[in-house]
């Protein structure tokens, strides 16, 4: 039963990720006084792409053609670890939050290799930038996660969320810092403004797009889907760790239904906030990204210190 719900949850993650991307696009267009594409447009794009024959560069090796499957599977595994609408699932025990970060690293490793495979300047540029930014983002991310892990004294996401739920509404300064750090990291890692702009192919600023420039057909669909999934995972992490209320603690149909509605509402609100910030903020120069990410790291560190100094009962 638990295993079934875990599987359903992962599938829901995969199924709902394009919806979140669509909703984000709708919000952004409205805010910018543009006519929005339909909410379901990302699904249509994915379906269209999977029905096209992929065109692959002549010198591509197996890394290039297999990388999309690896990236998608790794991201899907990361999704299976994160509680979406119910806690206490068997999948969160088989891998904790550090392993989840590891899955992202796995996907990124192959994405960067795929970028280098064709031997174009764009691919190398994207890989180099992606690896730089992620290597700065990872410590900031783990710092925020460690704050949570030390508070709940676990790295198991499901148990940590239960812990936060049981504590009730307590305003912890450490959590506030960690929340902001995680938001900054999430924006950087999912390639949103101000770090990267997913909507353009402007060569000087590309990061993610530069790596996947050579992809087409089902390969492109998988990579796009994986990046939508990644956005959703970060959204769910933020929503469920810091505002876990509404998540199902038992497996009755009612609780699960409420859990699903709650997470959908939380994600919708988060997407509006993200759209708002993307509309208000301009993209950053590449070499200011390290300042942004070291600020995120600093926030994570402050969270950790305030946990140790203020909250640890000694």
């Amino acid at each position: 039963m638990n295993g079934l719900i875990a599987a359903i949850q992962t599938l829901l993650f995969v199924a709902l990720a394009p919806l979140l991307a669509g909703w984000l696009k709708v919000c952004k267009c409205r805010l910018q006084n543009r006519k929005a594409p339909p909410l379901l447009q990302p699904y249509r794009d994915l379906i269209k792409l999977t029905h096209k024959q992929p065109v692959v560069a002549g010198q591509a090796s197996w890394i290039f053609t297999k990388a999309p499957y690896i990236i998608f599977s790794a991201t899907m595994l990361a999704a299976s670890v994160v509680p979406l609408f119910a806690v206490d699932l068997p999948t969160s025990a088989s891998a904790d939050v550090i392993v989840m970060v590891g899955f992202f690293a796995f996907a990124r490793f192959f994405l960067a290799l795929a970028g280098l495979d064709i031997g174009t300047a764009f691919g190398g540029m994207g890989s180099s930038r992606e690896m730089t930014i992620s290597s700065l983002a990872e410590p900031a991310m783990l710092m925020a996660v460690f704050t949570l892990a030390m508070t709940a004294s676990t790295t198991n996401l499901s148990i940590a969320i239960t812990h936060v739920l049981n504590e009730g509404l307590v305003l912890r300064p450490s959590f506030l810092f960690a929340l902001f750090a995680l938001i900054l990291v999430a924006v950087a890692e999912t390639g949103r403004i101000p770090i990267d702009n997913p909507a353009t192919h402007l060569e000087l600023t590309m990061i993610h797009e530069a790596m996947i420039l050579e992809y087409s057909g089902r390969h492109l669909a998988l990579i796009e889907w994986a990046s939508q999934l990644k956005l959703m995972i970060y959204g769910v992490l933020i929503a469920n760790i810091f505002l876990p209320w509404g998540i199902a603690e038992n497996f009755s149909v009612e609780a699960l239904g409420y859990g699903l509605l709650a997470i959908l509402a939380k994600l919708a609100v988060l997407a509006v906030l993200l759209a708002l910030s993307e509309t208000l903020v301009a993209k950053m120069r590449l070499f200011r990204v390290q300042e942004y990410l070291s600020f995120a790291y600093l926030l994570g560190l402050l969270g950790m210190l305030s946990h140790i100094i203020l909250e640890a009962s000694r």
Partner: peptide
């Protein structure tokens, strides 16, 4: 803090070995 430095090390190691494998075997 040391643990975060370890995280940075791991991420940089990934970047370094992407470079190694990518430049030697790909392209």
């Amino acid at each position: 803090v040391a643990a975060a430095a370890l995280a940075l090390t791991a991420a940089l190691a990934a970047a370094c070995f992407v470079k190694v494998f990518g430049l030697i075997f790909l392209g």
